[in-house]
Each structure stands twice: as structure tokens, then as C-alpha cells.
Simulated assay, not measured.
Amino acid sequence: FFIAFSFACYVLFQKEKLHVQIRKVFFAFLPKKKADAFLKVCSLTYRTFANFLAGQCLEAVILGCMFVVILSILRMPYALLIGVLIAFTALIPIFGAFIGCAVGSFLIFMVNPKQAILFIIVFLVLQQIEGNLIYPHVVGESVGLPSIWVLAAVTIGGNLMGIVGMLVFIPLLSVFYTIFREFVYLRLKKKHIKQVTKTEIEEYTAEEIVNSDISEGK
């Protein structure tokens, strides 16, 4: 862990230099079109993962604040502590807050067993609101992925790779979704499908070109 942490710090301190060196390697050994396409995918992946982490943190803060407010209104013990704990465990998508629920229930049970039962009921209600409404909306917008695909990514990733799969599959699916969407629109533009107007396709492709130019610093 210490070696990995130290290596990550070195990478962050020299990220600009590494970025230039990696670009030089790709353009030296690959054709220009392939190098541009690969670097575009890498840039998209970086932005998606960064936005996903930001959205995940925002969702955790929202959930923690909800618990602090509700538990304070109900005058339960350790309201602030439990809210902060649930916010940290909520960084694990969808199911992480249940870990905070178990610890919070134990803390409240030591003071008042009846309030512990009420806390579990409150948790289940807030978790349903957060898991089905807030989380897909906040995280889906941050990575540009529709809510239904966020839930699908969490379900599939969790079944295949557990907690790591939940964290990785959402940004990965967002990257594939964006690339495939662009590919579909370009195919439609070539075939001149009547169901999609020419103006819509031109606006979409123009927007994608502008975004790619901005990411490349043009």
C-alpha cells in the first residue's frame, strides 16, 4: 500500500511531463489517425472517471446530510456521527450505505433499542429514495449515462466483480455508451436514414468535434 501510494504521488506530480511523453510514443509508433483516435478514447475515459468520482462524492454528501437532518428531527443519538459514517460508506455504489446502517443501528441500540428499530425503518425509506431516485440521477448526469444504464452497470458489475465491479462498471459503460452513440450517429449520417433529420446529425457531430478539439487544446 505504501509503495502504491508513493508511486501515485509521483505520477500526479509529473502528470504533465508523462502526458507529453505518452503522446510522443503513440505518434511515433502509430499512424496519426489511430493515435488521434486512441488518445481521444483515453481523454474520454479520464473525464468520465473523474466526473464519476465527483458525482459519487456529491451523492454521498447528499445522503449523509439527509440522515443528519432526519435523525436530528427525530432526536436520535449520534445523529452527526451516523450521518458522516453513512456518507463515507455510501462511496460504495448503491449498497455501501448498508454498512453504515449496521454500525448506526448498533450505536443507537446501545442507547435505546426502540429507536434502533425506528432508525432501521428510516434508513430503508431514505435508501429507497436515494438508490432509485437520487443516485441514478446524480451519478448518471455526472458521467453522461441514462439512469437505467447506471442501475444496470451497478447490478452487472456487482455480480461479476463485487464492490470493485460496482465502482468500475459505471464509468466503463459510460465510455462505451458515448463511443457507440457517436458511431451510430455517424453511420446514420452516411446512410441518410429518413427517421433522423440531417440537422440533428450535423448538430450532434459538430458538438462532438468541438468537444474533442477542446480536450486536445486546439
Results as ranks from 00 to 15, higher is better:
residue 130 E to M: 06
residue 94 I to L: 11
residue 80 L to C: 11
residue 97 A to C: 13
residue 56 Q to W: 02
residue 83 G to L: 04
residue 101 C to D: 03
residue 133 L to R: 09
residue 117 I to G: 10
residue 86 I to P: 00
residue 89 T to A: 08
residue 94 I to A: 05
residue 76 M to P: 01
residue 51 N to F: 09
residue 106 F to W: 12
residue 62 I to C: 14
residue 54 A to G: 15
residue 88 F to T: 09
residue 112 N to A: 11
residue 62 I to F: 14
residue 116 A to M: 11
residue 86 I to L: 12
residue 120 I to A: 11
residue 125 V to M: 12
residue 64 G to C: 03
residue 51 N to G: 15
residue 74 L to M: 15
residue 115 Q to W: 06
residue 141 E to R: 15
residue 139 V to Y: 01
residue 99 I to N: 02
residue 131 G to E: 07
residue 78 Y to S: 07
residue 66 M to W: 07
residue 93 P to Y: 02
residue 118 L to D: 12
residue 112 N to W: 03
residue 135 Y to N: 07
residue 130 E to S: 10
residue 71 L to E: 10
residue 67 F to L: 15
residue 139 V to L: 01
residue 126 L to H: 04
residue 118 L to P: 00
residue 92 I to Y: 01
residue 133 L to N: 11
residue 67 F to I: 15
residue 129 I to A: 13
residue 133 L to Q: 11
residue 57 C to W: 11
residue 135 Y to W: 13
residue 102 A to P: 02
residue 57 C to K: 09
residue 77 P to L: 08
residue 47 R to E: 15
residue 134 I to Q: 07
residue 90 A to I: 06
residue 118 L to N: 08
residue 141 E to S: 15
residue 91 L to R: 06
residue 52 F to H: 05
residue 133 L to M: 14
residue 48 T to M: 08
residue 114 K to T: 10
residue 109 F to K: 10
residue 84 V to Y: 03
residue 85 L to V: 13
residue 113 P to C: 08
residue 124 L to V: 15
residue 95 F to E: 13
residue 132 N to I: 09
residue 110 M to E: 12
residue 82 I to S: 00
residue 140 G to N: 04
residue 49 F to A: 12
residue 61 V to Y: 08
residue 133 L to T: 14
residue 91 L to Y: 08
residue 83 G to C: 05
residue 79 A to D: 06
residue 62 I to V: 15
residue 132 N to P: 00
residue 126 L to Y: 04
residue 83 G to R: 01
residue 114 K to S: 11
residue 51 N to T: 10
residue 130 E to V: 04
residue 68 V to R: 05
residue 62 I to S: 07
residue 123 F to I: 02
residue 116 A to N: 06
residue 104 G to V: 06
residue 99 I to W: 05
residue 104 G to P: 00
residue 76 M to Q: 04
residue 72 S to L: 11
residue 93 P to F: 02
residue 83 G to P: 00
residue 120 I to H: 06
residue 100 G to D: 07
residue 140 G to K: 03
residue 129 I to G: 10
residue 56 Q to A: 11
residue 106 F to I: 13
residue 116 A to P: 01
residue 113 P to M: 09
residue 114 K to M: 11
residue 100 G to A: 09
residue 103 V to Y: 04
residue 94 I to D: 03
residue 48 T to F: 03
residue 81 L to G: 05
residue 119 F to V: 08
residue 67 F to Q: 05
residue 101 C to G: 07
residue 70 I to G: 01
residue 101 C to T: 04
residue 64 G to H: 00
residue 93 P to W: 02
residue 90 A to M: 07
residue 47 R to M: 12
residue 141 E to C: 14
residue 85 L to Y: 03
residue 88 F to K: 04
residue 106 F to S: 13
residue 58 L to Y: 05
residue 69 V to N: 12
residue 66 M to P: 00
residue 84 V to H: 02
residue 76 M to G: 02
residue 81 L to V: 12
residue 67 F to V: 15
residue 52 F to Q: 03
residue 71 L to A: 14
residue 51 N to I: 08
residue 126 L to E: 09
residue 114 K to E: 14
residue 122 V to D: 05
residue 117 I to W: 13
residue 56 Q to P: 00
residue 86 I to C: 07
residue 89 T to I: 09
residue 116 A to D: 05
residue 57 C to Y: 11
residue 63 L to P: 00
residue 139 V to K: 01
residue 82 I to Y: 01
residue 131 G to F: 05
